[in-house]
Design a protein around this nucleic acid. Sequence first.
DNA 1: ATCAATGCAAACACTTTGCATAAAA
DNA 2: TTTTATGCAAAGTGTTTGCATTGAT
Lengths: 141, 141
Amino acid sequence: MRIILMSASPAEREQRRQTEQREAIEDALRLAEKPLTAQELYQGLREAGRKVGLATVYRNLNRLVSDGAADTLRVASGEQAFLHCGGGHHHHLACRVCGRVEEIRDCRVLEEWTRRVAGAHAFRSVQHHAELVGVCGRCAG
Amino acid sequence: MRIILMSASPAEREQRRQTEQREAIEDALRLAEKPLTAQELYQGLREAGRKVGLATVYRNLNRLVSDGAADTLRVASGEQAFLHCGGGHHHHLACRVCGRVEEIRDCRVLEEWTRRVAGAHAFRSVQHHAELVGVCGRCAG
DNA sequence: ATCAATGCAAACACTTTGCATAAAA
DNA sequence: TTTTATGCAAAGTGTTTGCATTGAT
């Protein structure tokens, strides 16, 4: 397991060339507001008439993750999905109907719980990771 | 996404034939006390001199998951790992050094937090899922 | 004597990589 | 002009599946 702690430095970013494809990929991910697999994103762009290769989609998506501009998660099928999001510690609240994801940034309660569990099991340096899934207001009607 | 809600019924279970391979696989998983990928399990059995096919390992592991006798999770490499565990709602506290996993069954605090977040974001029927990773007493010395 | 379970290899699906070409800077 | 990004196809990986065979009941 490799954990990325820092985003690419400004100096590193300056070497990035801005291409039509990269912009299209980043925009699509940002507008989606929900996790997309590389294949979904690729097909979407294709159907929208933009010409991109699948490899380019993968390369850019992976780069966004390295840069901390996207999170990645695994869907049940085993595919990797990518989600546009800001950096820093946060959790996700997803709608199981429409797929939309909202970021949860306050998890002090979780931290407290984590401490308690850690103590009870004699574990140290325990980090938590949580996911919430429900039905959003829009979908619940 | 396919979600299994029920364990196999007794009637279905009765049709299970007990084979040398199946026992070896189940024992290995139970004794491991930590998540194992199908490949790891396969290699372990092979090195232990047991003759099993990789496909058999996959088939039995998947069956255990359907039966609710094992959980499955994705490791960073993208591989699926299998973990022996009892059924019912619970969370995992894993040691990032030795990999050992302990089950956490009391998550009332989490439920409360979940309710709060759900309310704040106007979500309904929100379920939570959490993972804790730290260093166990043994490994911390 | 049944019929489920196994083993092998082929098939699959997702992802990464090598290399020539295109295009930012 | 230099160097990164792209596209395609090939290679890589983990997992599933088809089918003949074995073996539990």
